[in-house]
């Protein structure tokens, strides 16, 4: 008998825990509220099913437990019942899948006016690159990486010269502007994950992946790495700050471009030419 009781308690306990416990997702800071809604739908449907199945079990165990002289009912199958249950399940699944796919199609279609921001991951830190005045990011590649050029930006690409390079520092983004995060890694798999934004995507050395979102509130958010990338994985954190337009402008002003960063070493070259004769 205990078991029937415990089954009921499992359902009640789970529901109470879900409803009352303080552990819940962190407040959203992006346009992906739809994802949360899909999650809620799924919670309702699956929750209902879980409760129904387990409570029914509990009832059966209590009602049909062995007593002297009990004989089980003999019923090999019941086609109609099984078909009904199958159809119901099908409906339940569709009710979750359809909204899901609808939101996914939004997730994978990047709006035309999204500004591009590049995230470069390496063991175990985050760097960033923003397009300069020309609004274009220069080409890049791991084979170009060197102490002078840690992000592997192509020095011969004119588009690259004015790119703003933020090495191992915080990223700032303007509020309410859709951004397309271009994700690049120079060593192993990483994953750019900000819980408040809901979105995440792996970064693969040798190719550029992406996701898009629109920040919807200012603040400081922690970046975590969500793909095992070696010993430092758990400590590979970073900061993204969502600014108002003006704060963002001032921050951007303080940053230096790829050209500026690589000049000192050109100066060095010049001096040598002077010294030689």
């Amino acid at each position: 008998m205990a078991i029937a009781l415990v089954l009921v308690l499992v359902v009640v306990g789970s529901v109470l825990f879900h409803a009352l416990s303080p552990w819940w997702w962190t407040p959203i800071a992006s346009n992906w509220g739809y994802i949360d809604s899909t999650l809620i739908i799924t919670f309702w449907i699956t929750g209902a099913v879980f409760a129904a199945v387990v409570l029914f079990m509990a009832y059966c165990v209590w009602r049909f437990r062995h007593k002297e002289g009990n004989v089980a009912h003999y019923e090999p199958e019941n086609k109609r019942l099984e078909w009904w249950l199958t159809i119901l399940t099908g409906l339940g699944v569709t009710a979750m899948l359809v909204p899901g796919l609808f939101v996914w199609s939004q997730f994978v279609t990047v709006p035309a006016d999204a500004t591009e921001v590049e995230v470069i991951a390496q063991q175990w830190q985050w760097s960033y690159r923003l397009p300069g005045a020309d609004g274009k990011l220069g080409t890049s590649g791991s084979h170009l990486v060197s102490p002078e050029n840690p992000l592997g930006v192509n020095p011969d690409d004119p588009n690259g010269q004015d790119d703003v390079v933020v090495e191992a520092a915080d990223l700032h983004l303007p509020m309410d502007k859709p951004v397309k995060m271009l994700l690049r890694s120079i060593d192993v798999l990483h994953d750019f994950y900000v819980p408040e934004f809901r979105a995440k995507m792996d970064m693969i050395p040798g190719s550029v992946t992406y996701f898009w979102f629109t920040p919807t509130r200012t603040g400081t958010f922690e970046v975590l790495c969500a793909e095992l990338c070696g010993t430092g994985h758990g400590f590979m954190r970073g900061i993204v700050m969502i600014d108002t337009a003006e704060d963002y402008a001032t921050w951007l002003g303080e940053q230096s471009t790829f050209a500026q960063l690589s000049t000192p070493e050109q100066v060095g070259a010049a001096e040598q030419t002077v010294v030689r004769p």
């Binding site: 899909t38 799924t42 699956t46 879980f50 899901g100 796919l101 996914w104 997730f107 809901r198 979105a199």
Partner: peptide
Amino acid sequence: LTGLFLGNVVVDVPLSD
């Protein structure tokens, strides 16, 4: 049932990993 969360691609995005 929690598998259904993860199976539903867009719901998996925040939950994955």
